[in-house]
Each structure stands twice: as C-alpha cells, then as structure tokens.
C-alpha cells in the first residue's frame, strides 16, 4: 500500500526554544525548502524570469529587434490592440487549435494503447515496441521534420510507394496540417507512452485480481480499473500534449514554413515571422505574451485538476 500523505509534524528540524515561542510566520520547514530551491532559482531567475519580464516590457514598445533596444519607443498597449484586430493572429490561433485538436486525442490514445501493449507484453514484443517509440524521443524536432518530409515526399516517400500518381500532402492546406500533426504525434508518442506506462505500473496488481475474482473480463478490467486509476496520468499527459502542440515550432519551420499559404502557421510560427522576418520584435513579443498566458492558464487548470483528485490506494 502506498502512502501519499506526508507527515505534518516538523520532525527533522526543530527551532531553538526562544524562536519557537515567537511563532514565526516562516517555519523552519519553509526555510529548508527555500534553501533547497535556491540553487535552482540562481539559474531559473536570470534564464527564465528575467527574459520573460523583458519580453513583457518589449511588448509595450516599438522595437525592430535588430539593435538599439534601449532607445525603444514606448507605445503602451498598442501592440495588443493591433493584435485584437489582426486577422492573421486570429487565423493563427484557429490553426493552432485545429492542430491541437488533431494532435492531442491521437497522441493520447496511441500512447495509451502502446503503454498497455508494453505493460502486458512479454519479451520481444515489449522490447521492440519500446525501441520503436523511444527512438523519436532522442531526436530533435528538426530531425523529425526532415525525416517526415522524406517520408511524405511524393517522389521518394510513402505516397510514391502506394500510388502511381503520388499526392503531395504539403501542397494542400489540410494535408499539410495533417502531415505536420502526424510528425508531431510520432515525435511525442514515446514520452506520452512512458508516462502512461509509469501510471499503469503504479496500479496495484491486487485490484486486477479482485476484479477478476468478481468476474470482470479484460475489457471490463480496463474500463473499471485501469481507466479510473489512470485519471491523473491522463490529465498530466493531456496537458503536456496540449502545451506541446501550442509550442510547436521546429516541425513547422522544417516541414512547411507555415505554408501552404499560412495553412500551418501556428501561433508560435506567426510570432517568429513577426519578430524575425518582419523585424517587429515588439509585436512578436506581444504574441509571445498571449501564448504564455494561454499556456499558463492550461497549466493552472491542470494543477487544479490534479489537486482535486489525488488517487490513493488504501
């Protein structure tokens, strides 16, 4: 039986008697926790927090991004007002949502099936599946994009093998989005699978045995035992895949550059084009802030969901 609760008593570190009588607002445990995260903060603050704050500041200015940021003209919320009326921004947001809608359920379902296969499999099958899904984890998005481009090439890829008149998937808007989505799922499936696998292996065998004694078949055990007990794992995976879809850039850059005709121009690529191609770093930063807010909202949602339903096996 696993005990998820931590002891509430201070235990390890006790403050001197005098300090204990003062009843400080910051407990010794807090201090210890603070000290433990300090090394991480030393890196996290300058490398993450400061750039985020700088990006936020830049989004309220008019800076080309080339040089002379200190001379940036402050224009208040103009970039955000322009974004609100920018058709291309809304179009990119729509494409990002469609992309997420294609990626999230596919990656989730395939990941679950693969995890279940590995979990129940023996020997060669399990090892083979593991190797197959682990390989893309070790590859960069660019490498996956290049491989997928070959894979879908009408000259030398799968289309050339299955048809005399091979179709160029990337010539059509929907086809291109589908092609990038498939590559995305392929690239991320390993991580999803292993999170599910960890969740599956944490489910006590006794529960399955009890269900079996009660007469539950394979599917019933999957529905009544596995699925409910994988709730948190599923939420974690769901959120991670969703965030991954929103942040996707490398694949788009490598495979389609946002084309054909902006059909795969997700928000992150739209942001890149504004900042680095059109020399509108401030406008790009405003898009980055919006993207950050979307992802932060999803993350908070995830935290609430997982807090609400912590699974305990008593």
């Amino acid at each position: 039986m696993k005990q998820a609760q931590m002891s509430q008593s201070a235990g390890l570190f006790r403050l001197p008697r005098l300090l204990r009588t003062v009843r400080p607002k910051i407990s010794a445990k807090d201090v210890v926790h603070g000290l433990m995260v300090l090394p991480a903060l030393v890196f996290y603050i300058p490398l993450f927090v400061v750039p985020i704050l700088l990006g936020l500041a830049v989004s309220f200015g008019d800076w080309s991004g080339v040089a002379g940021a200190l001379d940036m003209e402050w224009i208040g919320a103009e970039n955000y007002v322009e974004l609100a009326g920018d058709r291309k921004f809304w179009s990119s947001l729509g494409i990002t949502l469609r992309y997420a809608a294609m990626v999230v359920p596919s990656q989730l379902l395939i990941g679950l099936l693969l995890a279940a296969t590995i979990n129940s499999g023996k020997g060669m099958l399990s090892a083979g599946v593991k190797v197959a899904i682990l390989t893309p984890i070790a590859m960069s998005a660019v490498a996956i994009g290049i491989l997928a481009t070959f894979l879908f090439s009408p000259q030398i890829g799968i289309p050339a093998l299955i048809s005399n008149e091979p179709v160029d998937l990337f010539a059509e808007p929907n086809g291109a989005l589908l092609g990038v989505s498939i590559a995305h799922v392929w690239g991320g499936i390993g991580f999803t699978t292993f999170i599910f696998l960890a969740g599956l292996q944490a489910i006590p065998e006794e529960l399955y045995e009890a269900a079996k004694i009660d007469g539950a078949g394979l599917m019933a055990r999957f529905r009544r035992v596995t699925i409910p007990l994988l709730r948190e794992t599923t939420i974690v995976n769901l959120i991670l895949i969703f965030i991954g879809a929103f942040r996707s850039f490398g694949l788009i850059y490598t495979m389609t550059r946002g084309g054909p005709y902006r059909a795969t121009e997700v928000l992150s690529f739209f942001m890149y084009k504004q900042a680095f191609v059109s020399f509108r770093m401030s406008y790009g930063s405003a898009i980055a802030v919006i993207l950050f807010l979307i992802i932060a909202t999803i993350t908070l949602f995830k935290i609430r969901l997982t807090r609400a339903g912590t699974t305990r096996y008593y």
């Binding site: 080309s64 991004g65 080339v66 040089a67 002379g68 001379d71 680095f276 191609v277 020399f279």
Partner: peptide, 29 residues
Amino acid sequence: NTAFAGGAPPDIFASVGFEWLFAFVRPGA
C-alpha cells in the same frame, strides 16, 4: 537578423536587396 538582435553581428556582411539592408540601418546597427 538573429545575430544583430543578439548584439553579435558579423563585422562585414553581404546584404541581399536594399530595403533589407535599411532595416538594419534604421536602428543604427
């Protein structure tokens, strides 16, 4: 663009097209 934005441009660079060059000229780079 990225090299200029990062404050580490090359000493000498080839420029393709004219307005493209002026995009670097405007901010004094």
